[in-house]
Design a protein around this nucleic acid. Structure first.
Length: 573
RNA sequence: GCGCCAGUAGCUCAGUUGGAUAGAGCAGCGGACUUCUAAUCCGCAGGUCGGGGGUUCGACUCCCUCCUGGCGCGCCA
């Protein structure tokens, strides 16, 4: 009989992952079976999954069904053949074959507890991946025009973008968060005119406010700032550029502060006008012309986007000589690509999904692989408040600012709620539920689990019990059904992170957190009924130590997962 | 008309890229506090996975088609 210590060394050799051990065993069995059939072992990926039904075991593989076509045999027979050559391992109690051709693995009791030691050793690194090591990725999100403070309609983009960035960082990528803002063009002219009007009005002069200008109160504050800086020196200024520039700078600062309230910081703020100033737009258009990607028709210049899968070609220079928005966008993407990133990610709302094909076409016209650019499209958000459902596009929803939402609900609730749904489903933000500081609110449900972990350590100390840290030799005492359930979910954390990285869908973390917190609440409450299932049992010092190891791991993983979506775990409620 | 996204329990939504008997929260009903914090837990009830075809050992998942809802289809930004 091997000791746990020896088993543990076996684990480490296999990279601390029980799935790797099983894969090795299956591969071995597959080779043996192939040899007996007089064939070479097929080069197939081995999929190992967790059976939905507990009685089927802890892990299962469908390899026999996958290779049925290759071996030209009944899956059941193949499964039996593979099983015969699979060998033995102290972690595996039993291997069995089931109906259509599954091979099921039952682990030895206590085998899952090795994960606690991994969590202990890896600490805040637990769950992080190396998939993106050495790769640089630029994620562009938000990119709202600097025409006013952010409102609730911007929240999903901000939170989704930042959380994807966090997931990629956890995947080992070097991540740059970039905010691209359009400080050129018609809207900006309107902004400048609005500021000039407010400026003159605040100076007590008569000024006509532009038709559908920016009427928000913030413009008055900006006008006052301008007066305190320049007095009335600009009263006769005809050049609106100065006003536009001033307003844009101030608003960018406002937006930056709004985002910081949500825990979001950008590495770069990239201005569209800088592209024009540096001649980058003209330069990239010339580049495309030289490559015959542009052609002239009816007085306008067209980009051959259709050649790359777009519905039709798109105008980049209008017949009046003005450029369309696509021209600077392409110059911007050219700039990003030339900065040497392995991957560009854009986060945009569903109302802009029509631009994805032309953006990707632009990337290809520039001579790059379309896969260099990945666009994350999220669907619209509705707000359910006071029994009324209101759609929040970027245009509507202005009645409530992002700042107000964060101040009223808190960062944790806002971030969590916007990550509860997958990005391609339309979501309803339930204001009532978000405001609810009770068990109905999933955020508190999870925070409470974390706080409970903390309070258990405090409680133990009060009772004169000192947790002695991770002790791998006693972990095999964790054999309760409730404990094994927790261990299984803890073990799933790294693959959950991996899933987020692969799919760029951080909502998997919120789903995971609810599951993990639930498994702990279950265990804890069971202990209030059955003495033997309590975590702290003074008469059982060793078992108490082992259970505190479990609580430690829970606290760590809850904390890691919360950090991954930008939420600070609470020590107490 | 064309394209994208969605349609899963009364409501809001998950479903690990095709696995075994489809899950959770809320709402409903019934239980558990001399407690390691009940901000919790347990049980019951609730389903033609929008409809119909197809692909295969096997489909909520892939393909086709139809229905419903949202969004988008400019030399607008």
């Amino acid at each position: 009989m091997e000791t746990f210590q020896e088993r543990k060394h076996g684990m480490e050799k296999e990279n601390g992952n029980i799935k790797n051990i099983l894969e090795g065993m299956i591969r071995k069995g597959l080779e043996a079976y192939s040899r007996s059939m007089g064939m070479a072992s097929p080069e197939v990926p081995i999929l190992i999954e967790r059976p939905a039904i507990k009685t089927f075991g802890d892990f299962a593989t469908n390899i026999a069904m996958q290779t049925a076509g290759i071996f030209k045999k009944n899956p059941m027979a193949i499964a039996e053949g593979i099983k015969a050559g699979i060998g033995v391992n102290p972690f595996v109690k039993e291997v069995s074959v089931a109906k259509p051709g599954f091979i099921n693995f039952h682990l030895a009791p206590g085998s899952s507890s090795y994960i606690l030691n991994t969590i202990w050793k890896e600490g805040e690194r637990f769950g992080k991946q190396a998939t993106g090591k050495g790769k640089k990725v630029l994620i562009e999100f938000m990119s709202a025009n600097p025409t006013g403070p952010l409102h609730i309609g911007h929240a999903r983009n901000a939170i989704l973008g930042d959380s994807i960035a966090r997931a990629l960082e956890a995947g080992g990528y070097e991540v740059t968060r970039e905010y691209y803002y359009n400080d050129a063009g018609v809207q900006m002219k309107k902004l400048g005119l609005s500021l000039r009007a407010r400026y003159l009005q605040e100076l007590g002069r008569i000024a006509e406010f532009p038709e559908d200008g920016y009427k928000g109160e913030y413009m008055i504050h900006i006008a006052r700032d301008l007066i305190s800086e320049k007095g009335d020196a600009l009263a006769t200024e005809e050049d609106t550029e100065i006003f536009t520039h001033y307003a844009a700078c101030k608003i960018i600062k406002l937006i930056d502060e709004d985002l910081k309230c949500l825990g979001i910081r950008f590495d770069n703020w990239f201005s569209e006008s800088s592209l024009h100033e540096k001649g980058k737009v003209a330069e990239s258009l010339q580049y495309l012309k030289d490559k015959d990607m542009l052609y002239e028709k009816e007085g306008a210049w067209w980009l051959r986007t259709q050649a790359f899968g777009d519905e039709k070609d798109r105008v980049v220079i209008k017949s009046d000589g003005e450029k369309t928005y696509l021209a600077p966008d392409i110059a911007y993407h050219k700039d990003k690509l030339e900065r040497g990133y392995d991957l560009l990610i854009n986060v945009l709302g569903g109302d802009h999904h029509g631009y994805v094909p032309r953006l990707k076409a632009g990337v290809q016209a520039l001579g790059y692989d379309a896969r260099k650019l990945q666009c994350i499209v999220f669907q619209m958000v509705s707000l359910l408040k006071d029994g009324e459902t209101i759609k929040l596009s970027t245009r509507s929803g202005r009645f409530i600012t992002l700042r107000e939402v964060v101040e009223e609900l808190g960062v944790a609730v806002v971030r969590f709620f916007f990550l509860m749904r997958s990005s391609d489903s339309q979501m309803t933000f339930d204001w009532q539920l978000a405001k609810d500081h009770s068990m109905n609110n999933p955020v508190y449900y999870i925070q409470y689990a974390h706080a409970r972990c903390c309070s258990l350590f405090k409680k133990a100390e009060e009772m004169g019990i000192k947790w002695q840290g991770m002790n791998e030799n006693i972990l095999s005492l964790l054999t309760l059904e409730e404990e094994e359930n927790i261990l299984k979910i803890l073990e799933k954390y790294p693959e959950t992170v991996q899933l987020c990285i692969q799919t760029l869908e951080p909502h998997h973390i919120t789903t995971y957190l609810r599951e993990l917190a639930g498994s702990f609440h279950n265990f804890f409450t069971t202990g209030t009924k059955e003495e033997t299932k309590r975590i702290i049992i003074p008469q059982e010092p060793v078992l108490t130590q082992a259970r505190l190891c479990l609580v430690f791991a829970l606290k760590r993983v809850l904390g890691n997962a919360l950090h991954l979506i930008g939420i600070e775990p609470l020590e107490q409620m």
